[in-house]
Amino acid sequence: MLLTERTTPTRGPDRARRGRADRPGRKAALLLSPTFLVLALVVGYPLLAALRESLFRGGDELDESGFIVTGERFVGLDNYTAVFGEASARFWNAFANTTLFTVTTVAAEVVIGTAMAVVMHRAMRGRGLVRASILVPWAIPTAVAGLLWRWIFQADGVANSLLGTELLWTADGWPAKLAVIIADTWKTAPFVGLLVLAGLQLIPQDVHEAARLDGAGAWQQFWRVTLPLVKPALLVAVLFRLLDALRMFDLPFVLVGAQKGAVETLSMLAWDEANQVRYGPAAAYAVLLFLYVAVVAFVFVRLLGADLLGDRRARRAGARA
């Protein structure tokens, strides 16, 4: 949403020509209406429904004959105060896990993904094969990847025999965190690699030639030429990965299991509540997660996005000139 808003061009001049613009404005609104309708359907409605649900509670009282009283009652912000009150330890633990996983996996994926992209970009024999094999982890469904890594990390599994350790990776504890970080990095670094590769392929060869003529070494070329030029693509990849990692669910769920404090994320918390048929608290967790994701996305786009789009626009202008 934020990206599209920023790319909508010429808001200022449009307002200046208001008198003339009224008609085209209406036309634009009309033309955009299908988009808004779809957005309202797939974004607006679930969001509002979740917000509404988070203010209600139900199904937790028994009547005299032992049946659960049906219907929901309005409880205001009680579900939220409960999150920060009686359930606060669990919530902050999940919040910390979510943040830890996001920061560590995205950082690792950027480094490894960029390295993969550079390798994939190289013109060499068997390039097709290398590209395909690097992308394999990305093509595997997360739940399946979770199972594969669970076998690797089980007590008598490959990980322990390779490392010569006797760690219990899938028990509740720090090895479980590490297991999730490793598996997620393995799984999604190719995604970053793919986007960076697309960015790399846009860089004209002559820039590198010029750099070489000027006497830049391989490392200097990468650091001073390749990286700045590939930055826009890299930022998009990082943004996608951030949003994705913040709502991480299936990998820790399958790899380590539900209700394990070491790897419980905010999404898992919401799922757990919903599974116990407590939709109010579940919706409250979901709304809090949504706010967290929204804030992160907003800050990211504000801090880096302006630069990102600026770069691109400048480049386009340069190409045209």
Partner: peptide, 12 residues
């Protein structure tokens, strides 16, 4: 224009 969009959103 904003009003038109708002109406569209609301009706949707």
């Amino acid at each position: 224009r904003k009003a038109a969009i708002a109406v569209l959103m609301a009706s949707a």
